[in-house]
Design a protein around this nucleic acid. Structure first.
Lengths: 99, 99
DNA sequence: ACACTTACTTTGTGTTTCAAAGTACTTTAT
DNA sequence: ATAAAGTACTTTGAAACACAAAGTAAGTGT
């Protein structure tokens, strides 16, 4: 009975906060900073750092523009991010099925 | 569309290594140190520290005895650990179902 | 002008992870 | 008998991580 290889589980997605972010983006496709912040109950700083990390490995794309007078950061999941998330979920599924 | 509450996900189970350990124990019921070490491909130190952490919150029980001349540590999942794991899996399931 | 709000980012501190090194033996050559 | 190598762990230390408090840069009331 071989245990599962924990190294296979995407370490970057597998953070509770980033899992929440990615999961949200999978259905929402895109969201802006404040939407994520309020929906996921994150502090500004916490969200900001996790977004930066996800952006660094190209799982999401961040676009900054002004809407009227206010800055607006829009977050979009990339193809790479989408694939990574799907893989992550599949691995989790096999883990869960084993119960 | 409300995102999921990451704070609800058991932080102690939600470590890749500990998830592997708990998952293994759910089906194996009990295992000894070297079994976990080899099946889960963990270094001695890494396994040791995670076991200690899981023991601290009573998710597992560690029993040390000698078999012949050698020390043997047997790891058993507790009822509390079993429940915590089930809850964890349920939460993950809802996350996955949302896709 | 002054405090206050908004939309973030940076910084600082505490926590976590992991393997290398350490411990306390036992077993195996020589 | 002694040294070298293994066994079964635990402790330690350095790097990475998580998070909120503080900071920034702009706008908005009063």
């Amino acid at each position: 009975m071989a245990g599962f290889d924990y190294r296979a589980l995407d370490n970057i997605i597998h953070s509770r906060v980033r899992l929440a972010i990615m999961s949200y983006l999978m259905t929402a496709k895109s969201a802006d900073f404040n939407e994520l912040k309020s929906q996921l109950n994150l502090s500004d700083g916490n969200l900001s750092t996790h977004l930066t990390k996800l952006e660094t490995i190209d799982y999401i794309k961040l676009e900054k523009k002004f809407v009227g007078k206010k800055p607006l950061t829009t977050v979009t999941i990339t193809t790479k991010g989408n694939n990574a998330f799907k893989t992550y979920i599949e691995q989790l599924s096999t883990l869960i099925e084993k119960k």
